[in-house]
Amino acid sequence: MPLYMDIHTIADGVKIDDVAQAHKADLQKQGEHDVNYLRYWVNEAEGKVFCLVEAPSAEAAATVHREAHGLVADEIFPVQEGS
């Protein structure tokens, strides 16, 4: 399954607790689209959120975010995992 990293920019900053709630919503919705949200990272001060996801396509990953909470990523990149 392809691996993607998406990047969200929240103009007014973001709280990790809010991201945790959005991630829970993703987990509830992801099975409908054969997507697996694996991890996320947050920079509260800069308003940045990074999500690592296995998905059949970038569009499938974006669809989960859109349907789960409406916070679609600004960019989605295919990535390969290293050590």
Rank of each mutant, 00 (worst) to 15 (best):
A62E: 14
A45F: 03
V42F: 00
K48P: 01
P78Q: 12
H33C: 06
K48E: 09
H69F: 07
F50T: 06
A25P: 01
L38G: 05
P78R: 13
E75A: 11
E44I: 00
M1L: 10
V64T: 05
K29P: 01
G47L: 04
H23P: 00
A60H: 15
A58I: 14
V53M: 09
V14Y: 00
I10Q: 02
L71D: 05
P56F: 10
A11H: 03
H23Q: 06
H33Q: 06
E46H: 12
R66H: 15
W41H: 06
V64Q: 01
H8Q: 13
D34L: 06
L3Y: 10
F77P: 04
A25W: 01
E44A: 00
G47R: 02
A62Y: 11
H23T: 05
E81Q: 14
K29L: 08
L71Y: 05
T9Q: 12
V53Q: 01
T63N: 08
T63M: 05
Y40L: 12
L71H: 09
Y4V: 08
E54I: 10
K24S: 12
F77N: 12
L27M: 10
D18M: 02
L71V: 11
A61G: 09
M5G: 06
C51T: 10
I7C: 05
A20E: 15
E32P: 02
N43C: 11
T9H: 13
P56Y: 09
A55H: 13
A20Y: 07
V49P: 00
A20D: 14
D17T: 08
K24E: 09
A73R: 01
V14N: 00
A60S: 15
Y4M: 08
G13I: 00
A61V: 03
E75S: 09
D34C: 02
M1S: 15
R66F: 11
S83A: 08
Y4N: 11
D26G: 03
Q28A: 15
G70A: 07
F50I: 14
H8G: 06
A58K: 15
Q28K: 11
V79R: 02
D12M: 07
Y40G: 06
Y37R: 05
K24V: 03
D17S: 13
V14K: 00
A11D: 10
T9G: 03
K15Q: 14
A73I: 04
L3Q: 11
A61R: 14
D74I: 05
T9I: 13
P56M: 12
D34T: 07
V49T: 03
S83Y: 11
V72Y: 07
I76K: 01
L27H: 04
V72S: 09
A22D: 07
A60N: 13
V72C: 03
V72A: 06
Y40A: 12
V79E: 10
I10K: 03
L3A: 09
L3C: 12
H65K: 09
L52A: 06
D26R: 04
K48F: 04
A45R: 10
D6K: 02
I76G: 01
L27V: 05
A20H: 10
E44M: 00
E59P: 08
G13Q: 00
Y37A: 07
S83N: 07
R39V: 12
N43R: 07
D17K: 01
L27Y: 03
N36K: 15
E59Y: 08
